[in-house]
Design a protein around this nucleic acid. Structure first.
Lengths: 134, 134
DNA sequence: TCAAAAATAAGAATGATTGCTACTTTACAA
DNA sequence: TTGTAAAGTAGCAATCATTCTTATTTTTGA
């Protein structure tokens, strides 16, 4: 018998804040977003729930960027670009890696590849427009 | 007039320790390797030089894995697999991403992609052999 | 409404990384 | 070699994102 998953109001609010943005926020950003509406929200709660969402597959971690872990409410595999100018993390579609290729890699190397993440570095579209191409 | 790069004995030893392993070590690992031979070596020196090598292109960071930054003495682009069982970081050749594709991505998205890093998750060959496939 | 289980707040603790200052080492010229 | 200015380092102290702890509150299911 499957135990029903609990969803407190705050947990739900954290998940919605995460799903409702494409900025790949830090825990602290989510905390700042929700604090006005939930004045007694604790940063620890945000951390705990973000971790939980990643473990359950409802979200994923983009990794630690400039000292902060960045989260993504979209768990579907896709690439990210980290802008070296402004620090933004933006989604990049057209993921040029397939599960087939991962299977081939597994066979070739003796490893068992289960997922792949692609992180690009460069300039985001906004910074390119601003002429910060150099 | 180009200023000649200084290479103290300790800096050189740190670079050689990094180049001489494929384990993608942490700063602390390098420190532990060199401490017997250089008893007055400071962990801060290891950190500072590893950072310097990354900035100068002599090495690269694999990113923060399980709370520790991992470094790679091979700055040529290649993928890494992080074993979810034993935590090992292993090189994966046959990098399925080309600079051409990066150029296309740049054109499509308006970003300026300058480099790409691929990180795989799964089991390393050793853990697969140990039957920890599940 | 009630009791057990789960979740949270608040703040302390952790620990990798970086900063700081006085001391060494190095490079280079005379 | 020897002097000296610049670069590098040791040894801690400080930082600060993240995790842990405990008492309290909320939620769930009956």
């Amino acid at each position: 018998m499957e135990r029903k998953e609990h969803f407190s109001r705050k947990r739900l609010a954290i998940l919605e804040a995460l799903k409702g943005t494409t900025c790949h926020p830090t825990a602290d950003w989510v905390y700042g977003q929700l604090k006005p509406q939930y004045p007694d929200l604790s940063l620890g709660t945000v951390y705990r729930n973000l971790k939980r969402f990643c473990e359950s597959g409802q979200a994923m971690s983009v990794g630690v960027i400039a000292g902060y872990e960045r989260f993504d409410g979209n768990p579907a595999p896709h690439a990210h670009l980290v802008c070296r100018q402004c620090g933004a993390v933006v989604d990049v579609c057209g993921l040029p890696i397939s599960m087939e290729e991962l299977g081939k890699l597994s066979a070739m190397t003796g490893c068992q590849v289960e997922s792949a993440s692609i992180t690009l570095k460069g300039l985001c579209a906004a910074c390119v427009k601003d002429g910060k191409t150099a």
